[in-house]
Design a protein around this nucleic acid. Structure first.
Length: 646
RNA sequence: GCCGGCUUAGCUCAGCUGGUAGAGCAGCGGUUUUGUAAACCGAAGGUCACGGGUUCGAGUCCUGUAGCCGGCACCA
């Protein structure tokens, strides 16, 4: 007998060998019908699999988030079956569930075309209608390897060979089709439902390694219901309207062109936005005890060799040779320059922690395929800073930094998507003891400062130290690393950074590389998508347009614009010979936060009719009131807080 | 860099199976003086990304290159 503990706390005994289905049926026939999976002691199991023992027990139906993940996983199996039925000779590899859907990687000489997706979808629907039972089988390891090799599934055979010797090999069968898989799965293909859609084709390397063969990946999305699928598709469509590239063009912020791949031509409005953010960041750094510097844009190759970057990233650096035979490199990062400034003259322990900031313009020859709007560029500006400190100051500095970062993100209405800690890579500098301490310090400090999980990334740290990553999301849910804090025990050594300690001895400082925006451009891209171009007043490149209604009011309109401008607002004047309807529409589409319309009435009463973006109708205020109100609202959040504190 | 797709007027897009280009908006010139999301008229605007080929004839078919888009790989 086995004893099951149900979510309500009740306990019941069942015969050995009872399956989740038996349990569901014993409760209610209707529950058996709706049951898809069970959870036993936290582990998901197939509904028809005999329960291996007793424990806490739960029956999952379609509505459960865990069931949705299995629906997506099964959709990938149905996809694979459909592909193999339609395109014999195609090899299957792996096909997991992912956020919002699933994919499956196939090996096939001929590429799939977009047109194939329709046919594959239709076949998938057929397989769902066939309602094939999905059956779990346990296979002998060697037989499994031989079997998959015999039927030409080399990748599957390779996967099994690489599994640990004691791993139970399970194969799931649906109709004539089968796949090596850990499971669990739904009882039959009918339960996958029809709320799925194949979305895109892509290349993907076998096992994520570019030295391996490239497979063909088919992505799809799958949901528990048609309504959820439709909502998802609508959400994607909506998100595409927020795309920073589209908004950048529509709002005339910037452009990119072939002659300068991965580099931005900032237009007046975009550059105003950029400078507003830069000024804000500069104030935040200033109040947090940073000093700002500026190091050369191009420096001798020798310095990059000494820092170690030439060896590792030389291929990706822009270089030039002078007529006098010097070899120079455009800086791909700011740290070596900052160490030169640190090294100039003598530093005392009293100078530490020394927080040295620079809005550093960096150039890197990024692979062409990596470029993406203004998120991934070849020329970008880091809001970089290096904190030179003693080892015992690392934690406090990290906590201080994360606090600042959180405060900055919240001023832009951004939520951290995730925080990750990249741990020691295989090839690294420094002893294991040093890494132990370093990783623990960052982990502790980050956990203390952010109210969320810190996800470890084994093997992904920089060669010189562990790295905290702060990720934000773009409109369609792709995440971008923006903030970062990296501990470095190598560079101070390589570039001979020293300070004089209390006892008069020379000591090496530790260096913390840190950035909040990461790249100003990327941060701007994320901010554009976050606000969908409708910036709060303090950020909007054009904060207000003064629009005349008739030309009688032109002089007064000029006066209003001048008054707003004198109060520090970024104002445009629209005296064109157009109807007010036309002007309102145009400036609304341009996402101008405030339209101040003035006609004969306003001119006579020295008033303005204020219309706010997104609001219906307008409020008439006296000119003085309007200026005071808008000027107050346009104060950046950090200055507003400072004013509040007095 | 790799796989797939796309590239037609400033922008958004038409252009069927090959017969040398079309709309809306913007811009320009006029008319209109207008009350809160598109007034009216007119003229103009294109080496159909770039190069090569097939053909009597190519935006359309083939091929090479570039850029961009979606992924993958990369990201000091």
């Amino acid at each position: 007998m086995i004893e099951l503990i149900f979510p309500d706390g009740s306990r019941r005994a069942f015969d050995d060998g009872a399956s989740g289905r038996d349990v569901a049926a014993s409760i209610a026939k209707s529950l058996e019908k709706r049951a898809l999976l069970v959870r036993l002691d936290g582990q998901l199991l197939d509904l028809d699999r005999p329960l291996p023992g007793g424990g806490t027990f739960e029956i999952l139906t379609r509505e459960s988030p865990d069931a949705l993940e299995v629906i997506r996983h099964d959709a990938s199996h149905v996809l694979a079956q459909a592909v193999q039925e339609l395109f014999p000779g195609t090899q299957v590899t792996i096909g997991p569930a992912i956020d919002e859907g699933f994919y499956y990687d196939f090996a096939r000489d001929e590429p799939f075309s977009l047109d194939d997706l329709g046919a594959i979808e239709a076949r998938m629907a057929e397989i769902v209608d066939r309602d094939e039972k999905i059956v779990r089988e346990v296979w002998d390891r060697n037989e499994a390897i031989a079997h998959f090799r015999d039927i030409g599934e080399a990748y599957k055979a390779e996967i099994i060979s690489d599994l640990p010797e004691d791993e139970v090999i399970t194969v799931y069968r649906q109709g004539d089709w089968k796949d090596l898989c850990l499971g669990p799965h739904l009882p039959s293909t009918r339960h996958v439902g029809k709320a799925f859609k194949l979305t895109k084709l892509a290349g993907a390397y076998w096992r994520g390694d570019h030295r391996n063969a490239q497979l063909q990946r088919i992505y799809g999305t799958a949901w528990a219901s048609e309504a959820d699928l439709e909502a998802y598709l609508r959400r994607i469509e909506e998100a595409e309207r927020r795309d920073h590239r589209r908004i950048g063009r529509a709002m005339d912020l910037f452009h990119l062109q072939e002659e300068a791949k991965g580099m931005i031509f900032w237009h007046p409005k975009g550059w105003t936005l950029y400078r507003t953010i830069e000024a804000y960041m500069r104030r935040r750094l200033d109040t947090d005890g940073y000093v700002e510097v500026k190091a050369p844009q191009i420096m001798d190759r020798g310095l990059w060799e000494k820092s170690g970057h030439w060896e590792k990233f030389g291929q990706a650096m822009f270089t030039c040779e002078t007529t006098e035979g010097e070899e120079l490199a455009v800086k791909p990062m700011n740290c070596p320059g900052h160490v030169q400034i640190f090294n100039f003259g003598q530093k005392s322990y009293r100078d530490l922690p020394l927080r040295m900031a620079e809005f550093g313009a960096c150039h890197r020859y990024e692979p062409s395929g990596a470029l993406h709007g203004i998120m991934r560029l070849r020329a970008f500006t880091q809001d970089d800073a290096h904190i030179f400190c003693r080892e015992d100051q690392i934690e406090a500095e990290t906590t201080k930094f994360v606090k600042l970062l959180n405060s900055v993100y919240s001023d832009f209405g951004l939520d951290l998507h995730s925080v990750k800690l990249a741990l020691r890579p295989e090839i690294r500098a420094g002893s294991d003891e040093v890494w132990d301490i370093a990783e623990a310090k960052l982990d502790r400090a980050a956990r203390q400062a952010v109210n969320m999980e810190v996800e470890p990334l084994p093997g992904e740290g920089a060669f010189y130290g562990p790295k905290l990553e702060f990720h934000l999301r773009d409109a369609i849910g792709r995440t971008w690393q923006c903030g970062t804090l990296q501990l470095d025990f190598v560079l101070p050594e390589r570039l001979d950074a020293e300070y004089v300690a209390e006892d008069g001895s020379k000591q090496r400082p530790v260096m913390l590389h840190r950035a909040i925006c990461g790249s100003m451009e990327r941060f701007l891209g994320v901010a554009i998508e976050n606000y969908a171009g409708a910036f709060p007043l303090w950020l909007a490149p054009t904060q207000a347009v003064v629009a005349s209604i008739t030309s009688d009011a032109d002089d007064y309109a000029r006066e209003v614009a001048a008054a707003l401008k004198a109060a520090g607002l970024r104002v445009e004047l629209d005296l064109r010979n157009e109807k007010i309807n036309y002007k309102v529409r145009e400036h609304s589409l341009a996402k101008t936060p405030v339209i101040a319309a003035v006609g004969r009435r306003e001119a006579e009463g020295r008033a303005v009719a204020i219309r706010r973006l997104g609001a219906e109708g307008q409020t008439v205020l006296s000119l003085d009131e309007a200026v005071a109100a808008l000027a107050g609202e346009a104060v950046p959040p950090d200055l507003a807080r400072a004013a509040l504190r007095g």
